[in-house]
Design a protein around this nucleic acid. Structure first.
Lengths: 132, 132
DNA sequence: TATACTTATGAATAGTTGTTCATATGTTGT
DNA sequence: ACAACATATGAACAACTATTCATAAGTATA
């Protein structure tokens, strides 16, 4: 059962995608307009900002890149990232709250994994933009 | 002429995309691994984090959504966003530095526009993730 | 040039964030 | 139960951010 915000979000996404599909001329803006008659729900805007906030720190980006190579324990992540184990743990907490990673215990270790493929696609989009 | 960082970024992106293409099983991680033998250049990581930082504030998200509906002057954006003109101008400055928007003067007004379609796709990915 | 209008900028401030240190919690093996 | 190891947590602090206010800079018109 989809909530109101989910329905709204789907409408926004499909509108954006349809709009992209419509635009084949390489212009900086789709043909159909106005695309969004009114601003989306304040809550959705906040959640979107919050999601991207999770990608907005170098340490967290490092962690995500590391996990793109495979699931890792906190200790292994700490080695790769190059800061305190405490800092890594704090940031993993943020990433977990943003639902970008999942944690499962394996004995003394806790293994972290990317929670889904959106992380890949969002990161790839970001990198693509940087090199335009 | 591609710079070193651009070549590296392209490699990262194509690896991520190829990896996504390889994975048809719905798992949370691609088949081929390790995907990234080593961490990308520190500069690229910083730039990626910096890009997403531009999407990490509600006011800026509002501005971007507004511009998805068409090019707007600062005054029009201010109406939509619902905070001071000064705040909008400051945030437009940030968005311009992140190369997400472009500004052109039209008489007394300055018209802002999204600089390319990456904004659409990045936002759409974000919204999709929220509703998973 | 003087006025009205639009946008940009600088200073001040309150709120947020990332890091470290010290320590607590949890797990395994003896 | 105890020791050794791995991870999480809380407090403190420095750095950064977003906002507002006041005002400057740019533009059009009388």
């Amino acid at each position: 059962m989809a909530t109101a915000i989910e329905r709204e979000a789907e409408a926004v996404v499909s509108a954006a995608q349809a709009s992209l599909a419509d635009c084949a001329c390489g212009c900086n803006r789709p043909d159909t307009e106005p695309l969004f008659a009114e601003m989306p729900d304040e809550e959705l805007l906040f959640d979107v900002a919050d999601l991207f906030k999770a990608f907005s720190d170098t340490t967290r980006i490092k962690i995500l890149f590391a996990l793109m190579g495979g699931d890792l324990s906190v200790g292994e992540i700490t080695e790769v990232v190059g800061c305190t184990q405490s800092a890594v743990s704090h940031q993993l907490r943020n990433l977990k709250q943003a639902r970008l990673v999942r944690a499962t215990r394996d004995g003394k270790n806790v293994i972290y994994a990317l929670s889904d493929n959106h992380v890949y696609t969002i990161l790839a989009q970001g990198i693509t933009h940087i090199c335009e």
